[in-house]
C-alpha cells in the first residue's frame, strides 16, 4: 500500500496507576493499552474491536490526547501529536473529532442544540460569524433533523436524534478523521440501522475517515474496511474485513466470531466457548495474553509473547500458532469476493 497514511500510532502505551492504602502509593499498573501500533489510511473505515477492558476506548482517547499516553507516539499526517504543546493541541483537535456512545451524557443539557453544534466553529473560528447559524442549520438537515431544532434543548430529543446532534457537532469543524467510540451501541435496533446508514452516507459526502471502535462484530463487519482485534491492551490481529471474516488466524478472533449470535435459525457455526473470564489488566497473563482462555494453547504460549507478524499480505497476527483454530463457515462477504 503506497497510499499516504492519515493516522499512525507507534508503540502506543497507556498504563493507569493503581493506588492503594492511606498514602495512595502506586501499587500496580492497569495496562490498558500496551504497545499498540497501527495505521489508518485516508478514506477508509478502520475498526477496533474487542471486549470490555481490552483498551479500545482508552486507545481512542489517547489518540486525541484526551488521555496522555504513557509512551509511544501518534502521528497525524506525519505530525507527532504527542509532542504538541497544549495550545497547539487545542488547535490540532480540529482535525479529529469524536462521536460518543451515550447520547444522553454526551450533550450539555443546558445548551441549545445550535450552540452545541456551533461551539467548535466558534473555538476554531470556522466560517464567518454571521454564516455559522446557516452552516449549523444546513448540518442539522444533513444529519436528518429539522432545521428548527436549532433553538431547542437536548432533552426534547430521543436517543437516536441526540446521536444525530452529536454527529453534527463532530462534522461542524470539518475534521479529517472521526473517532466513533461505540457510537451506535446504546441505540435500539431500528434506530441503530438509521445511524449506521447515516454515518456511511456522510462518509462519502464529506470524504471522511472513520476510526470505528465497537464491541459489536456485526456492526464492525458492516462498516469497516480494515479491522484490528484487541485483547487485554494488545493487538491480536489486523487485517481487511474480507480476510478477517473468511480466514481469521488468531484463535481469539475465531472464538469471538463464533460467539456472535446471528438472527437466522439455520445458521450453524462451530461455537467455540471460551472458558472463564477476561483476566485483570493489572496482572495480565505472561506470554501470550490470551493463553489462559485459548482452546489451542501450548507450552510456548505461556512464556513467549508472540509478535505481530504479517502472516500473509495485509494480514497481521500475534500468535505462535496462527490458523490452528478455524471457523467452520467462512462468512462470505461479497458475491465476487476473491480473497
Amino acid at each position: 500500500m503506497n497510499e499516504s497514511v492519515l493516522l499512525k500510532t507507534k508503540h502506543l502505551t497507556k498504563f493507569f496507576p493503581v493506588k492503594t492504602g492511606v498514602f495512595r502509593r502506586t501499587s500496580g499498573w492497569v495496562k490498558a493499552v500496551d504497545d499498540v501500533s497501527f495505521q489508518v489510511y485516508p478514506g477508509e473505515t478502520f475498526g477496533i474491536v474487542g471486549e470490555s477492558g481490552c483498551g479500545k476506548s482508552t486507545l481512542g482517547m489517547t489518540i486525541l490526547r484526551l488521555i496522555e499516553p504513557t509512551s509511544g507516539s501518534v502521528f497525524f499526517e506525519d505530525r507527532d501529536v504527542t509532542t504538541l504543546s497544549s495550545s497547539q493541541l487545542l488547535r490540532f483537535r480540529k482535525n479529529i473529532q469524536m462521536i460518543f456512545q451515550d447520547p444522553f451524557s454526551s450533550l450539555n443539557p443546558r445548551m441549545r442544540v445550535g450552540s452545541i453544534i456551533g461551539e467548535g466553529m466558534t473555538v476554531h473560528g470556522v466560517g464567518a460569524r454571521s454564516n455559522r447559524e446557516f452552516i449549523v442549520r444546513t448540518l442539522l438537515e444533513k444529519v436528518g433533523l429539522q432545521a428548527d431544532s436549532f433553538d431547542r434543548y437536548p432533552h426534547e430529543f430521543s436517543g437516536g436524534q441526540r446521536q444525530r446532534i452529536g454527529i453534527a457537532r463532530a462534522l461542524a469543524i470539518s475534521p479529517k478523521l472521526i473517532i466513533a467510540d461505540e457510537a451506535v451501541s446504546a441505540l435500539d435496533v431500528s434506530i441503530r440501522s438509521q445511524i449506521i446508514n447515516l454515518m456511511a452516507d456522510l462518509k462519502t459526502e464529506f470524504q471522511l475517515t472513520y476510526l470505528f471502535i465497537s464491541h459489536d462484530l456485526s456492526v464492525v463487519k458492516h462498516l469497516c474496511d480494515r479491522i484490528m482485534v484487541m485483547y487485554l491492551g494488545k493487538t491480536m490481529e489486523i487485517t481487511t474485513r474480507e480476510i478477517l471474516f473468511c480466514r481469521p488466524l488468531h484463535p481469539y478472533t475465531v472464538s469471538l466470531i463464533s460467539a456472535v449470535p446471528v438472527p437466522d435459525p439455520d445458521y450453524h457455526i462451530n461455537r467455540i466457548l471460551l472458558l472463564g473470564d477476561v483476566p485483570s489488566p493489572v496482572h495480565p497473563p505472561s506470554g501470550c495474553r490470551f493463553h489462559t482462555r485459548c482452546p489451542v494453547t501450548r507450552k510456548k504460549c505461556e512464556t513467549d509473547e508472540p509478535l505481530l507478524i504479517e502472516q500473509e499480505p495485509f494480514h497481521f497476527v500475534a500468535c505462535h500458532y496462527p490458523g490452528t483454530l478455524a471457523i467452520s463457515v467462512p462468512l462470505i462477504l461479497t458475491s465476487d469476493s476473491t480473497l
Binding site: L64, F100, S105, L107, E119, V123, H124
Partner: peptide, 17 residues
Amino acid sequence: EEQYITAARSLGVSHFF
C-alpha cells in the same frame, strides 16, 4: 464524568471555557 465534557475537550475548547 459526563461525555459532553470529553466532547468539549475533543473540540479543542480551553479549560477555562
